[in-house]
């Protein structure tokens, strides 16, 4: 365990996970039609999805899903996998772990009194991972999740806010500084790890990168101050998306605006192939973005962007490539369409 003295990083040994007397999730044949918030491939022929009421589903096709009963009813917002280990996070700062591909589940961490959710989770190695969430929630484990430490990182703030905090630290002392820092941090909506760099997007136009797995951060400036929910690394560079369909791609000349067809928030991106990105939006929009030629405008007007709407018209949270299909999770559960048609 190494701590960089120079970093504005503070670790607090988290209170051991207090597991309230919560019952396990409710088995229901409608779990695959309920609000599902994340989906991943866990095997070449198996996917897993998590969602409201502690729903965890795995399956080999839409018609063949299995609900895992887990020891919490908290709504789960994100899921990640490293080898045989699975971690799901969610509301009440819940961190759930399965060491055996979903056979058994245990709550590694939960803080119901926090009244806030984790929104994403990521593991660098079997032992080293982070969980991020609302109101600047940032927790790290270096022992595979046995213990989780809370971190507050002022470098994630807007430069103006950083200056304000530095002032407070001098005038009012360390304790008040920490309190203020915790309250001023934005929601961390999504993390992604690409080419050794950790990226994180969040509220108030926050895009940040870290060379050291999140110990220190540098903000990436962008001319938009609404929330970002999605970030992905594409063959042509980073793509970020957020509130009301605002989408941007990082190019050598700076951020290039991508004009989607619909003003619905982008929840996730899925890279379908080297030239095609799928944006998953609220109100049931699957939006295909053609990035083969970044010299032109990428916009709905010239058909480099095109949308179709699902019949349910419910918000789509994420999607995966699965065999020839795209399987997505939405407010009305699992659905799929044939990738070739897109």
């Amino acid at each position: 365990m190494k701590f960089s003295y120079l970093s504005l990083l503070f670790s607090l040994i988290a209170t051991p996970a207090v597991i309230a007397a919560q019952e396990s999730s409710i088995a229901s044949h409608l779990a695959n039609k309920s609000l599902l918030l994340d989906i991943i491939n866990i095997d070449t022929d198996r996917f897993m999805a998590v969602g409201e009421r502690g729903h965890v589903l795995s399956g080999s096709s839409l018609d063949n899903t299995y609900q895992h009963i887990i020891p919490t009813k908290s709504t789960l917002t994100a899921l990640t996998q490293l080898d045989n280990g699975l971690w799901a996070v969610g509301h009440d700062l819940t961190i759930l772990h399965s060491p055996d591909m979903g056979e058994t589940w245990l709550v590694q961490f939960q803080d119901i009194s926090s009244e806030k959710p984790f929104l994403d989770v990521l593991f660098f190695t079997e032992s080293h991972g982070i969980a991020v969430g609302a109101y600047g929630a940032f927790y790290r484990t270096r022992d595979g999740g046995v213990t989780w430490q809370k971190e507050l990182n002022a470098s994630l703030l807007h430069p103006d806010d950083q200056a304000y905090l530095d002032e407070i630290r001098e005038l009012d002392g360390e304790e008040f500084y920490l309190e203020e820092l915790a309250s001023i941090l934005p929601h961390f909506n999504r993390v992604t790890f690409a080419n050794g760099i950790l990226y994180m997007v969040g509220e108030t136009g926050m895009i940040a990168q870290s060379q050291d797995q999140g110990m220190t951060w540098q903000r990436i400036e962008i001319d938009y101050d609404g929330s970002f929910f999605a970030i992905a690394d594409t063959p042509k560079g980073l793509i970020v998306g957020g509130l009301r369909g605002n989408t941007f791609m990082q190019t050598p000349n700076g951020w290039q605006t991508i004009t989607l067809c619909e003003e619905a928030s982008v929840n996730s991106f899925t890279v379908l192939d080297s030239n095609t990105i799928l944006a998953l939006q609220n109100n049931g929009y699957y939006t295909s973005i053609d990035i083969s030629n970044m010299d032109q405008d990428i916009t709905c007007k010239n058909n480099t962007v095109s949308s179709i709407q699902s019949s349910e018209k419910t918000s789509i949270l994420n999607a995966i490539r699965f065999n020839d299909q795209v399987i997505s999770v939405s407010a009305s559960g699992l659905s799929s369409f044939n990738n070739n048609k897109k």
Partner: peptide, 16 residues
């Protein structure tokens, strides 16, 4: 919460 479906929950906080 900005129409984010991840917040489609009952808040535990009474004021919220």
């Amino acid at each position: 919460n900005e129409g984010n479906p991840k917040w489609n929950i009952l808040p535990r906080n009474e004021a919220v």
